[in-house]
Write a protein that binds this DNA or RNA. Sequence first.
DNA 1: CTGAAAGCGCTTACAG
DNA 2: CTGAAAGCGCTTACAG
Lengths: 341, 341
Amino acid sequence: VTGGPTSGPNLGPTLHDVAKLAGVSARTVSRVVNDEGGFGPEVRQRVLQAIDKTGYRPNRLARALITRRSGTVGLVIAEMTDPYFAEFADAVQQAAHESGLTMFISQHHGDVDIARTIFDSMASFAVDGLIVFSARGDLGAVLAHASAGIPVVVIDQVVEAPNVVSVVSAIGEGAELAVRHLADRGRERIAMLANSDSLQSPLQPRREVGYQRGLQISGLAFDPHLVVHGPATIRGGLAAAQSLIKAGTSFDAVFAYNDLMAIGAMQAFGAAGLRVPDDVAVVGFDDIAMCEALVPSLSSIRLDRASISREAIRLLEQLRNGGPATMPVQIETELVVRSSS
Amino acid sequence: VTGGPTSGPNLGPTLHDVAKLAGVSARTVSRVVNDEGGFGPEVRQRVLQAIDKTGYRPNRLARALITRRSGTVGLVIAEMTDPYFAEFADAVQQAAHESGLTMFISQHHGDVDIARTIFDSMASFAVDGLIVFSARGDLGAVLAHASAGIPVVVIDQVVEAPNVVSVVSAIGEGAELAVRHLADRGRERIAMLANSDSLQSPLQPRREVGYQRGLQISGLAFDPHLVVHGPATIRGGLAAAQSLIKAGTSFDAVFAYNDLMAIGAMQAFGAAGLRVPDDVAVVGFDDIAMCEALVPSLSSIRLDRASISREAIRLLEQLRNGGPATMPVQIETELVVRSSS
DNA sequence: CTGAAAGCGCTTACAG
DNA sequence: CTGAAAGCGCTTACAG
């Protein structure tokens, strides 16, 4: 099977081994493998048999070196253990698969400096494109230098740099939807569990803005005492809700930065003897899978992860083919009402 | 900067561009980049400056083609949205990073046929090794053909195939620990929420075996009515716990197949007015991060994901260097007692 | 419809 | 301590 002059010690048969066995040139095998046409049906048959017999598998590294397309896309998220990112990674993987791309994954933990290292590494592997989730700090400056030549799609952060396009969800609108829904249900003292990270972020806190707009439209007054901050985790939501209870400010509903905080808050309410939704209605954000499985199930703002991911892949291909760097693409959000409100 | 005869249209500067700028041969630049020694300090300086000026980044594809080491490892899990796998992927990523490896990730959804396709794809990318999580069906037969030449470490399933080594957690012992702990707490009617998938699996249900052994050691009788099956999810655990309540069989503790089922069960108990741990003690399995954040916090059997991952990477390197295919490596589990028991 | 040559960007034996 | 040649496995212009 092997042993030909060009067959490696370990990596199995090469194009030449197949060619020799089929009695054709390497060029012809290449044509059959890539289905380029320009060969007869029985030549095709002979080559296919030889491929089968040798167990030949094309070396994509070698191919990528010439074609300058590796067929890979790098995904850079903050934390893969966060359900929000895990479900996004799943959607991106799906979208990549649909386009015949294989996915590298890496975590920047929200840190732009780690992101820079990851970009370098991904560039070394000649990924065809990068899908990057927002991080604290100036991602634009990093991307301008680090990604040199590689198309990049940034999710949920607008970044101005060559070869970079953004895809953002209508987050402010989603927050507004949540608050108006709670007001429609007759709630008048709607608290917000905000992300303490966004206090230090240069980015605009879109959920807070949407929250205030929702109150305003519903004719409710904004009370700063009803906004408490905490880390965007279950524990953070639990602590934030506890501090809200402790403060003694009356409230009959809570809109949380994300579902994890909402889940933490529901735990705090349960422990404090507050019933959801009777005493407190709760709406989360992101609509992670767990929302459906909770008792009571959690109302949330749905991000269209599938659309965002497909759009990201599409834009990557477009950039790579020299297409224009379009304006930021906006994806709609949707209110999903469940038992918690 | 570019424009040299060997510099590509898009992919930036090459070794030759750096060499030309530094006034040395490509060979010398390669030596400096890989820190092989055999060059003077001021030559080094000149090369480093040229690298900086051109923004040169080595093309790892080209390097991999020659060295037959791509510096990548493929991780194949069932579902990245399952916290169990997400936390494992995180640990593997960490371990890979420590060894200078970059991680591909893919999901087989428990299906051996999908796994086969993934193996083919990963092999085409010349990954240095594969870390694969257990799946229904004969993984061994698939691996024997599909991975040809690539070292494989299988997690939590013993597979007999050339170039394949297994790393398994002491799952049976963990289950036994959980049950003995509940018995030590004075519980006498300990139910088990089992995974309905394992009913069709050819693999031995290690948790069930450990459960029975734990009962026996504690002097408790095994009652088949106390074992209920369901999918290994929150919803599955919720439904299983509900059916347990509905059946009317008395029970004062529950050991769950995994933490997700335990979380579902706790929801069911809460909705049914049963207090945890007063009326029902609950112990999960895997010790996912969420256990700590719940109210009450969930006792669980801890899998040492960091050790398992590091061991997997170590074995991969060993196999690759022609080391022997060792016996399955066993990693200990640990009982973590929290408020739920 | 098919083949011999050149080369993607790098490293690996070899000379000097 | 340094350089010119060969080649990893494949594809891309070119001839026939």
